[in-house]
């Protein structure tokens, strides 16, 4: 009974919820800053870059945690297609949370911009200066942002479906443990 966990590890849960807030905020910041000529453009951009690098660093840590501690298994009675969708969307989320900051960083490098995270903190370029590469990476950054937002919506809807409709413990596996440590398997 103890061989397979019914919850994500505390580290995985902490990273999940912290990054959920950061990534959703990041998507709103990104889509908002390119759609205004007001002062918001400037201060959102100033948040966007350091927040993106923070997400990149956390995503690396999270990937290591995930590979070290396999997540609790999905319910045995979950239809195969739903299991596949869960697996695919989780790896898509991992891919995007790693790729988005790297594309943003490479895009600024290709555009010849100094990659400033603050007043004087500058990251080195990770891509040679090239207007063609800039254009391709900039469009990729926008397209992947839309894909990430849609994947987030699907992920959240699926989590609520598990929690409210199926009530199969999948949502609970990412929530804080209940105050009285009950062994769920006994209730089964």
């Amino acid at each position: 009974m103890n061989a397979t966990p019914d919850r994500f590890t505390p580290a995985a849960r902490a990273l999940h919820w912290l990054m959920a807030v950061m990534i959703v905020a990041m998507l709103f910041i990104g889509v908002g800053m390119v759609a205004t000529v007001s002062a918001r453009h400037e201060w959102l951009l100033a948040i966007h870059k350091p927040l993106g690098i923070a997400i990149l660093l956390l995503a690396v840590v999270r990937l290591a945690v995930r590979l070290r501690h396999p997540p609790p298994p999905l319910p045995a009675d979950l239809p195969v297609l739903q299991k596949l969708a869960a697996l695919a969307s989780h790896w898509l989320l991992y891919f995007l949370m790693l790729a988005m900051p790297l594309i943003g960083w490479a895009m600024l490098s290709a555009g010849g911009y100094p990659v400033m995270l603050g007043e004087s903190l500058r990251l080195p370029p990770i891509f040679p200066t090239s207007p063609v590469a800039f254009a391709v990476l900039r469009h990729l950054h926008g397209t992947f942002a839309m894909l990430l937002f849609l994947t987030f919506l699907a992920h959240m809807a699926a989590a609520l479906y598990h929690g409210l409709i199926r009530r199969d413990g999948v949502l609970a596996s990412m929530l804080p443990a209940p105050p009285t440590p009950a062994d769920d398997s006994d209730q089964a």
Binding site: M1, L160, L164, I165, R166, D168, D184, S185
Partner: peptide
């Protein structure tokens, strides 16, 4: 290992689906 599914009752299901739809629609809008 995990809870066997104890699905929501039909009456609750409708409100659950409504809640899910709202949870998607609000951030999308």
């Amino acid at each position: 290992m995990h809870d066997p599914a104890t699905p929501a009752q039909p009456g609750h299901r409708t409100s659950a689906w409504t809640l899910i739809a709202a949870a998607v629609a609000v951030p999308a809008i």
